[in-house]
Write a protein that binds this DNA or RNA. Structure first.
Length: 104
DNA sequence: AGGTTGACCGTCA
DNA sequence: GTGACGGCCAACC
């Protein structure tokens, strides 16, 4: 799998996350690990930083259910807009966490 | 070629 | 709950 194909695989998966649900960067990396041969949360993070605008980037959060300060406000607005379960200003990962195969 | 830098994560204190 | 550390892998000096 070429790096380019990996990027597509990440975007494709993110695009399948249902509204109101989220996956962590690490969960995305894990989900693609078998198919891609790699599993790096950091890599998924940088891919989202570059290509996230093309998909529902607010549905991919860090393991704490938060987002970096730069985009936190926008992310929170989107979570509220689609009814994502929140805990203070973070996503409630226990309630909102999604795994591929769940909504199919 | 080599060092630094990220929209990260799990572990340990 | 917080903070430090090591591992991670591609992009960028």
């Amino acid at each position: 799998m070429t790096p380019d194909e990996y990027v597509e695989a990440v975007l494709e998966l993110v695009d399948r996350i249902p509204p109101g649900r989220v996956m962590s960067y690490g969960a995305v990396a894990d989900a693609l690990a078998e198919r891609s041969g790699r599993a790096s949360a950091r890599l998924v993070g940088s891919i989202m930083a570059r290509h996230g605008a093309a998909v529902g980037w607010h549905r991919v959060v860090n393991a704490s259910g938060a987002m970096p300060a730069r985009i936190a406000a926008e992310a929170r607005a989107r979570w509220l807009a689609e009814g994502t379960p929140l805990r203070q200003d973070r996503v409630d990962m226990r309630a909102a966490g999604w795994r591929p195969g769940e909504g199919v």
